[in-house]
């Protein structure tokens, strides 16, 4: 029976636009794979039970928990982390707004926060503050009190919407 189950699984995927092949332990979660095998330490492993949001990454276009997804499940997936979105300048405006609005202090939650925000902003329009708060309810920040983060998100949503209309 046990030959039907593997303790090491081969996966083929793309990470930040590059093809990756790896052999991963059955129980390894995605964020540990990214951090330890690929050296992508932007997503943080923190609570490891889905509560804090620091490990948020993008899988096939959606923000998900890196600690509640097994690396073995990533076969065939398209993964983006904060490193990839930074290198391609996709979130430069958002990062600038976080700095300008003091939306981070220690920075531990920021990579996960950016991934969650970008998912919301990618839907377009200017979400109202309650919607922004609701969308970020799964991302803990222990420094800012959230108000500055909501300010930053709102300002970027407005700026992007203006760009679309002008």
């Amino acid at each position: 029976m046990s030959e039907m189950f593997r303790d090491k699984i081969v996966i083929d995927l793309t990470v930040n636009g590059e093809a990756v092949q790896a052999r991963v332990p059955a129980g390894q979660h995605a964020v540990d794979f990214l951090r330890q095998e690929l050296g992508l330490t932007g997503a943080h492993a923190s609570c490891e039970h889905g509560v804090c949001g620091a490990c948020t990454i993008r899988i096939d276009g959606e923000a998900v928990r890196g600690c509640l997804t097994l690396a073995a499940q990533l076969d065939g997936s398209d993964i983006w982390t904060v490193e990839g979105l930074s290198d391609t300048d996709a979130i430069r405006d958002l990062q600038q707004a976080f700095i300008a609005r003091n939306a981070l202090q220690c920075g531990f939650c920021t990579p996960g926060m950016l991934m969650a925000v970008e998912e919301l902003l990618s839907k377009g329009g200017v979400p109202d503050r309650a919607v922004i708060r609701e969308h970020l309810s799964g991302n803990y920040c222990r420094c800012t009190g959230y108000e500055a983060i909501v300010d930053a998100v709102e300002s970027v949503a407005r700026a992007r919407a203006d760009e679309v209309t002008s």
């Binding site: 189950f5 303790d7 540990d32 097994l70």
Partner: peptide, 11 residues
């Protein structure tokens, strides 16, 4: 903590 898994199979 880290998961301890006996094995994995994709149906």
């Amino acid at each position: 903590m880290k998961a301890s898994v006996g094995g994995y199979a994709r149906a």
